[in-house]
Write a protein that binds this DNA or RNA. Sequence first.
DNA 1: TTGATTGCAAATGATTTGCAAGGTT
DNA 2: AACCTTGCAAATCATTTGCAATCAA
Lengths: 157, 157
Amino acid sequence: MQPEGYWVTIETMSHSGQEFGWAEQLQAAGHRLTAPRRAVLRVLEGARTHLHPEEVLERARLIYPGLGRATVYRTLALLTDLGLLHPIRLGGSPRLARIAEGHHHLVCLACGHSFSFEECPERELEAELARRFDFEIKGHLLEFYGLCPDCREAEDA
Amino acid sequence: MQPEGYWVTIETMSHSGQEFGWAEQLQAAGHRLTAPRRAVLRVLEGARTHLHPEEVLERARLIYPGLGRATVYRTLALLTDLGLLHPIRLGGSPRLARIAEGHHHLVCLACGHSFSFEECPERELEAELARRFDFEIKGHLLEFYGLCPDCREAEDA
DNA sequence: TTGATTGCAAATGATTTGCAAGGTT
DNA sequence: AACCTTGCAAATCATTTGCAATCAA
């Protein structure tokens, strides 16, 4: 019954036309660039997986040991406001793998493992939607849910 | 800074080939069909939006007043195990609209409003991925993130 | 009957907030 | 100097769990 609960994973936005690093964008928006923030940014920018806030904390503390948990949350909120991050929450997965700038997953509903793929058939759709809704689209997330081979096997047994 | 926090929204799985109602599927899986569960099921099956557990509780209490919060969570977990529900968590949106069986949203990063659309360009991709990863795919979620016309305007001002 | 299920209340876990101290511009 | 940021600890909010009573099969 998925006793593990759920996790917040951080979803970096794709094709946002990022000309500057996050640090610069943070400053451009009038925020100060402090050592704690730098540490968090470095972790996030370098992440090859979705990270929980707690993981961000752990890793960022390797860079800036005194870092407080609240600062991580505050920085995540800040980046979310700037449209650089988007929090999502998925149940059942101990961890979600992700390829650098892609946001395309295949998530197993049973074991929670996820697989990434690169195909992105939404480009045309994106343009069409941008036009129809007059939206400025910054990124997307495409996830398929199902059963992986191992779990299907286990289920049959 | 999005003081509202985040919400759990319930994502019904699409094209799952549902031949029976959830009540039947629950029983088929060996679970008992109780009044509290019936109430929750009725709310979920009738929902035209993503619902937070708290909303499910509120609505289900209209049907079965004595309903306890824990039972809602337990039932949601049960349905998740059966692959009928999938919990997701999105930040920044007060509510997420959704069209009956579609799971295609356009979410404004600023105001959190969401718009639904029907196009679904992933059918072929789904088949291709199912083959490549040997996955049994049950549903999917496609979300675009961006800025709606109103918020873009407000931002420019 | 008999084990599954329930509501309640307490326990847990995650996230947010108040505040005095410290850091950035 | 002025005000933004920080870390800490306390507060809050969401979710889970223990348990005795109740209910579906």
